[in-house]
Lab assay of single mutants.
Amino acid sequence: LVRYRTISKIPQITLNFVDLKGDPFLASPTSDREIIAPKIKERTHNVTEKVTQVLSLGADVLPEYKLQAPRIHRWTILHYSPFKAVWDWLILLLVIYTAVFTPYSAAFLLKETEEGPPATECGYACQPLAVVDLIVDIMFIVDILINFRTTYVNANEEVVSHPGRIAVHYFKGWFLIDMVAAIPFDLLIFGSGSEELIGLLKTARLLRLVRVARKLDRYSEYGAAVLFLLMCTFALIAHWLACIWYAIGNMEQPHMDSRIGWLHNLGDQIGKPYNSSGLGGPSIKDKYVTALYFTFSSLTSVGFGNVSPNTNSEKIFSICVMLIGSLMYASIFGNVSAIIQRLYSGTARYHTQMLRVREFIRFHQIPNPLRQRLEEYFQHAWSYTNGIDMNAVLKGFPECLQADICLHLNRSLLQHCKPFRGATKGCLRALAMKFKTTHAPPGDTLVHAGDLLTALYFISRGSIEILRGDVVVAILGKNDIFGEPLNLYARPGKSNGDVRALTYCDLHKIHR
C-alpha cells in the first residue's frame, strides 16, 4: 500500500512540481520508500527539464536528425535550378540546329562534286560548318556529364541527390541515346576521305529529338503553341524528305545512260545542264529549293507536275512521300480545326451564355430598361472574369491554397485601402477568403433606401454616388468604403439613402 501511494504521487509531482519531503505519510521509514524516492526525484528532475525545454521552444527539443539540413553532394545540380533551365534551352537550340543542318550536310555532301578544292585539302579548321559541328559534339558530351550530376524525382516524389543513384537512373534511361548522339564521328573518321560515311553517321544526332519531343509535351495545353509546333514538325519532315529526294537524284545521276532524272530535267529547265562528264548542272541553292518544293507539294497532295519522278527509285520514294503525307494530314492537320476551336472556345461560351440571357429575357418578357441593365451587367461581368467562376475553380483546392490565391487576387485593395494598413498577414488572409466580388454598370442602383444592410462594401474600381431623395450626399471612388460596420450592432440596419454607380464599378463586399 505504501508503495502504491508513493507511485500514485508521481503525476502530481510531474505537473505541480511538489516535493515529496513535505508529505508526512511518505516520510515513514520503510525500505521500499527509501529505494523508490531517489528514482522519483530523478524522474521528476528529468520531466521538469523536458517541460522547461518545451515551454522555452528551444531548438534542442527536436531530434538531432530533424535539425540537420538535407545534404547535397558537391557538384550536384538541382533539376529545378536556373542554371539547369538555361542549359536545357541551350541544348534545345543545338538539337534544332542539328535537326536542320545534319540531314542537309549528309545529303548535299554525298558524292558532291561542286567546283573547288576537296575538304581534305583545305583542312578541318577552315570549314565553318565542321567547326560548328565540333562545338555541338562537345556541348552534347558536356550535357552527358551534367546529367550524371543532376537530381531527379523518383516514384515516391522524392528528390534524389545521391550521385550513385543518379548515375544508375541515367544509365537506365537516356544515357545510350545521348551517348550515340554525342559521338564525334568527324574526329574519329577525319582524314579518311569518307565524307559520305561521316554525313550518314552524323544523322545519329537526330535521336535527341525524342527527348525534345517529350520536353515539349508540357506545352500541349496551349493551343497556339501546339499549332506552332505542328507546323514546325511538318516543315521539318518536309526538309528531311527534300534532303533524301536530292540524295536519290544525286546518286543516280552519274550512272544513268539517259538523262531522265529530276536533276537533269531541272538543269535543262533553268539552262544549267550537266555536261557529258557529269559536272556542271544547277547550283546547290536551286537543287535544295526545288527538292523542298517537290516534297511540300507531295505532302499537301497538290502535285503540280513541273517536278516529277521519272526513275524507279524516284517513283518509289514519291509513293512513300504520299503515304507520309496522308498520315500527316490525319495526325496534324486533322487537329488544326480542334485547336482553332479551342482557341476561340471563350468567344463561343460568351455567345452561348448571351443567347441564354436573351432567351430568358424573351421568355419572361423583361421590360426594355431592365433588359438593357441585365445585358450590360452580363457584358461587364464577362469582360472582368472571362466567364470563369472563381468560386467553382477554387473549390477543388485546399483552404490554405485558397487563402493564398484570394490574398493575391485582392492584393491591390488590401495594400491601398486604409482600414487594412497594419493588419497582420493572417488577418488579411482571413479577410480575403470572405470577400465576394460584384460588378455594376453605370446607372445601376446597388442599394435602395430602406434596404437591409448586411454587408460592408469596398470599391475596387469606378465611382458611385450616394443620394437622399434627389440630393447627392457624397461621391465615392476607388478604395472608399460604404455599408454597415460589421458586428457593431446586434441587428442589421437599414439604408438611409440610395447608392448608384456612376461608372463601371468593381466592388468587394463582406457579409455579416
Score class of each variant (00 low, 15 high):
T300W: 01
V100E: 01
Y222Q: 06
E196Y: 11
I361E: 01
E157R: 14
H169L: 01
I198C: 10
N335S: 03
T98W: 01
G281H: 01
L92S: 04
R205E: 09
H408S: 01
F363K: 06
I361M: 08
Q402P: 02
Y80Q: 10
A348T: 10
S283R: 01
V142W: 01
L409D: 02
K66P: 04
T438Y: 10
C122E: 01
S331T: 11
H239D: 01
H408D: 01
L236K: 01
N335V: 03
F360I: 02
A432P: 02
G173A: 04
D217N: 09
F378T: 13
L401K: 01
A224V: 14
L110F: 08
Y219E: 04
L279P: 04
S383E: 09
V95T: 07
R373V: 04
D217A: 08
L67H: 04
I340N: 01
V226G: 11
A125F: 15
N368I: 05
I244Y: 01
R211S: 01
S194Y: 13
S337Q: 08
S297G: 04
S331A: 11
C406H: 15
R214Y: 05
K436C: 06
H448V: 08
L216S: 04
D133A: 01
P117I: 14
L187P: 09
N335A: 03
L263A: 01
G199K: 15
A155L: 12
W75A: 07
K285T: 14
M328R: 03
I339F: 03
P254H: 03
R356H: 12
H439A: 06
E64H: 09
P441T: 08
T385G: 07
M433N: 01
T98A: 01
G193M: 04
P398L: 01
A291C: 01
L431F: 07
L229C: 09
G193Q: 13
W89A: 03
L431W: 03
Q365N: 03
S313E: 11
C400K: 03
A392S: 08
F175H: 01
F378M: 12
V210L: 04
P441F: 09
Q68R: 11
A242E: 01
I135F: 07
M179P: 01
R421I: 06
V226D: 10
P163A: 13
L292M: 01
A225M: 04
K215N: 04
A107C: 01
E314M: 01
G116S: 07
A291T: 01
G396L: 03
L90D: 01
K425I: 06
M251N: 08
L401H: 03
A155P: 13
L292W: 01
K66S: 13
V180E: 01
V142G: 05
T203N: 11
E157N: 11
